[in-house]
Design a protein around this nucleic acid. Structure first.
Lengths: 216, 216
DNA sequence: ATAATAAGTGAGTAATCACTCACTAATGGA
DNA sequence: TCCATTAGTGAGTGATTACTCACTTATTAT
């Protein structure tokens, strides 16, 4: 895990974050081990060891173990929940003449697929830990409710009004679209990452499935 | 949590299991707390306390903490993976004249939905812990590969040959069918259990979505 | 160059961990 | 009734836990 990756990950609101080498090592080690053994199953002593750092150094930068977890998860969730989607895609769709729903889906899926590929460990941590830490749950809810959901709702409603999507409760619609995508990402990177995957084919099947399933 | 529930859960291969009251309390407490805090975050002392039992009593029945986990998870996974589906449904479908795929889906979904409703805690434990415990992963893989997958494959292939389902790699097909269902169950019982759910409507939307998405 | 601040250290601490063991209480078959 | 087996106990164990603190080293601003 390289420092540039961490700097990019931790950059929120455009704020640059400066990391010493040891700080970067701590974060990298924590991400690795949290993903491997889970937060509660990870000893700070082990993080220190793998980071090549004294245990005290960890607590110099993070007052408590949980702060270290949040320092990893918080930007992870934000980057996960605020995809290119929110910033570019919807604008493109609605400000220009919009392309088809399939093109939108394709862009979205590949975008999140690549994010998952580059952040498997953090994805794993978020999925494993949000159930036990209300702080994480809140971060996710905020990010989702404020950034993702309204955009998706706007987009989906637009397509529904254009008669391209079936009328359903918006939550149901979103769930029907998201579940197969998430199902594929989780299978691809967490459950069976070593299988031989024809990603392009899978994505096309996925798009076809969702599209036909949602047709008016 | 009542003893009859536990006896039913632990009954595998028809073998009756006799539990003293304290043993049942231990299992019930362990299920509760494991689901709340996760395995690694749970102290055996706390299980003993909530079960109203000396800590030594736990280790009289389970040599190690992990054995207690497995005693809960193992039958849980089996009951989860070997639904009425495996025993009755497929037989019904193939031995009689078969109904439509929608009827099959409906039966399957309601069946698993009810199972989830009655086993939320165990569902949560399995989902949370399988990533960290190879033993659990193996139990799941065995149960799935031996009992569930062949049945599903047989069924799906049958419908494909009848021209009712699109031709796709079998794994893709299964994933497309299972993801939305699992997505619903997880949302319904784990993510947002307190919302007002119109289950019947959701299930019908789900069936419609899957059916149309899979149409040849 | 110097002083001020930040980064890093590692031995030490109280608390908690999973687990043991010598023991008593309850149960069931003869 | 007696005995053998099983169930249950709780104080005690060494290991490990997250975290502290007095200290040294490195960095930065002036």
């Amino acid at each position: 895990m390289r420092e540039s990756y961490l700097r990019e990950l931790l950059k929120v609101d455009g704020q640059e974050i400066r990391l010493t080498e040891k700080q970067a090592n701590i974060l990298a080690a924590a991400i690795e081990i949290f993903a491997e053994k889970g937060y509660a199953g990870t000893a700070t002593s082990e993080i220190a060891k793998r980071a090549g750092v004294a245990e005290g150094t960890i607590f110099r930068h993070y007052p408590a173990k949980k702060d270290l977890l949040l320092a990893i998860v918080k930007p992870g969730v934000l980057k996960l929940a605020v995809p290119v989607f929110a910033d570019n895609m919807v604008e493109n769709i609605f400000n220009r003449e919009f392309q088809g729903f399939d093109e939108l889906l394709r862009t979205f899926i590949y975008n999140r697929l690549d994010f998952a590929r580059q952040n498997v460990a953090i994805l794993r941590i978020v999925l494993q830990e949000f159930a036990f830490h209300p702080e994480i749950k809140m971060i996710i809810e905020e990010a989702f409710l404020e950034k993702v959901y309204p955009r998706i709702k706007q987009t989906v409603t637009g397509f529904q009004e254009a008669g391209l999507l079936k009328e359903m409760p918006i939550t149901t619609t979103v769930r029907c679209i998201v579940s197969p995508i998430l199902g594929f990402i989780v299978t691809r990177f967490l459950l069976n990452p070593d299988a031989e995957w024809d990603e392009a084919q899978e994505v096309e099947h996925l798009i076809d499935f969702i599209l036909k399933g949602m047709e008016a």
